[in-house]
């Protein structure tokens, strides 16, 4: 009896400790959400209160009346463009790396891993020159090109692990059944790795969605800004309103959360496979 009692106490102690910690960690997020619904007078009130008196929607109205949708669309276009290119290339590449054998294959895989670890900042100056020379400064192409530098190695590496998890024998069975390489790829392999391709696409989308560095250097006009740049610039303005900034923060986070909710069951193993099991 006392053993069971001890275990019960232990479980409750752990529950309290864990939840206190989780609350502390999520406090900034709670505060962000609450602040976005506070009126300008309430937000600067002393002492501040956790929850707004009334649900004030003025921040969101002001945000959506401004450049928000323009920036939002820019972010969507750049991230989607990057994902499409990177997934097409990455799928072909991963299939090649995992299903054939030819000299230099291992070296290629290692090279991908290395570029995956290389810092974006190092690419900044040369990319700038290339973008100027290609005369694509301040266009979507500039940002897609720049985002590919991190999205491509990441996707290729992740896709490679998905392709590796599809047993080779299923493909061999299809070949014995008379399927050509082409048919094998489209009818047998692709349907099986489709969940992996979708997850990889979502991860790559989020990475590109999150880019601040490249977007801040390679866009020069207000109408080409992406969301992160737009928000960061607004935050530095002297008359920036914190309520609107918090509303913007919430609005940028929501798409990411929706995508992650979509992935949630797969999230833990994927982050491990892609990032840690290198």
């Amino acid at each position: 009896m006392s053993r069971m009692r001890r275990r019960l106490i232990r479980t409750w102690a752990l529950t309290v400790a864990a939840w206190l910690f989780v609350l502390a960690v999520s406090f900034p997020l709670i505060w962000m959400l609450a602040s976005s619904f506070k009126s300008p007078t309430e937000i600067t009130a002393v002492p501040p209160r956790l929850l707004p008196d009334a649900l004030y929607l003025g921040n969101y109205e002001a945000l959506f009346a401004g450049d928000f949708w323009r920036w939002f669309m820019n972010s969507i276009i750049v991230a989607s463009g990057t994902v499409v290119i990177v997934i097409v290339l990455g799928t072909l590449g991963a299939y090649s790396l995992t299903r054939f054998s030819y000299p230099g294959q291992k070296a290629t895989s290692t090279a991908i891993l290395f570029t995956y670890l290389f810092p974006s900042v190092l690419m900044l100056v040369p990319l700038f020159l290339i973008i100027v020379e290609l005369r694509i400064m301040n266009t979507y192409w500039a940002l897609i090109l720049a985002d590919m530098t991190f999205a491509m190695p990441f996707s290729l590496w992740l896709l490679r692990s998905y392709f590796l998890s599809v047993p080779l024998q299923v493909e061999e069975a299809a070949m014995v059944d008379g399927a050509s390489r082409f048919a094998c790829f489209f009818q047998i392999v692709l349907p099986q790795v489709m969940p992996g391709i979708i997850s990889t696409g979502i991860f790559a989308f989020i990475l590109a969605w999150d880019d601040y560095l490249f977007a801040s250097v390679f866009t020069t006009t207000a109408e080409m800004k992406t969301l992160p740049v737009g928000i960061a610039r607004y935050a530095n303005e002297l008359n920036a309103e914190w309520g609107i900034l918090m509303a913007a923060s919430v609005s940028v986070t929501v798409p990411v959360l929706v995508l992650f909710a979509f992935l949630q069951r797969r999230l833990l193993p994927d982050l491990n496979a892609g990032a840690v099991k290198a």
């Binding site: 047993p167 024998q169 061999e172 069975a173 070949m175 014995v176 050509s180």
Partner: peptide, 16 residues
Amino acid sequence: VQRRNVAMVFQNYALY
């Protein structure tokens, strides 16, 4: 392999 008239049963069955 596609043009040989063979069939094969794999150890782990390798069903689609």
